[in-house]
Amino acid sequence: MSDNQFKRGELYSFITGVASTAIARRLQKNFKQHGIDITIEQWSVLYHLWKQDGLSQQELCNATFKDKPSITRLVDNLEKLKLVKRVASVEDRRINMIYLSGAAATLRDQTMEMANQTLNEALGGVSTEEIEMCKSVLQRVYDNLK
């Protein structure tokens, strides 16, 4: 790709997440309007636990691309909200496994529906081919830097 296809500032802004930030802000607003008192960061932890319950804090770090102190803080706050619980690993008591509570399970359907609606709104007028091309390019950028 030659340097003149994009203005550098525009390209960096796009790659660093302007679109992602806009979607996250809209989803946060939708949560608030529906009385759901969790942050997008907390929701991202819950999302990964809904995919696979009982992840270690390190696995959550890897899945969410967050550092250990951030995950510790997020899990602390999710525990206060009674959405998750920490359980010491049977194999290694230094490792905490994070499990969903019953309250988190009931939150899943409602928040996933809002996430889908928000994403549909964000992708209005974008064709399937454009989405696939975007995914391919961003995957290549990620792979190049991995």
Rank of each mutant, 00 (worst) to 15 (best):
M1C: 09
M1Q: 11
S2N: 14
S2W: 11
D3F: 14
N4Q: 14
Q5R: 13
Q5H: 11
F6V: 07
R8V: 11
L11D: 05
L11E: 07
Y12Q: 09
F14T: 10
F14K: 08
I15M: 09
T16H: 10
G17P: 05
V18N: 02
V18M: 03
S20V: 05
S20W: 02
A22Q: 09
A22N: 07
I23G: 03
R25W: 00
R26F: 01
L27A: 03
F31L: 12
K32I: 06
G35V: 06
D37F: 07
I38P: 02
Q42E: 14
Q42K: 05
W43T: 03
W43I: 00
V45T: 01
H48Q: 14
H48I: 01
Q52D: 08
D53A: 02
G54P: 06
L55I: 06
S56K: 11
S56L: 10
Q57V: 08
Q58A: 15
Q58K: 15
Q58S: 15
L60W: 01
C61D: 02
T64I: 07
T64V: 09
D67E: 13
K68V: 09
S70E: 15
S70C: 10
R73N: 14
R73E: 15
V75C: 08
V75L: 04
L78K: 04
E79F: 00
E79N: 02
L83R: 01
V84I: 12
R86V: 04
V87R: 12
A88G: 08
A88R: 11
D92I: 06
D92S: 10
D92E: 13
R93P: 09
R94A: 14
N96T: 07
N96C: 11
M97F: 08
M97H: 08
Y99A: 02
L100M: 10
S101G: 01
G102T: 04
A104N: 03
T106G: 05
M112G: 00
E113Y: 06
M114D: 02
A115P: 00
A115W: 03
N116E: 11
N116F: 08
Q117S: 09
Q117G: 04
Q117N: 12
Q117F: 06
T118V: 05
A122N: 00
V126L: 12
S127R: 11
E130F: 07
E130R: 13
E132V: 12
E132C: 10
E132T: 12
M133H: 12
C134I: 07
C134S: 13
C134D: 04
C134W: 07
K135W: 09
V137Y: 10
L138Y: 07
Q139K: 13
V141Q: 03
N144Q: 11
L145S: 14
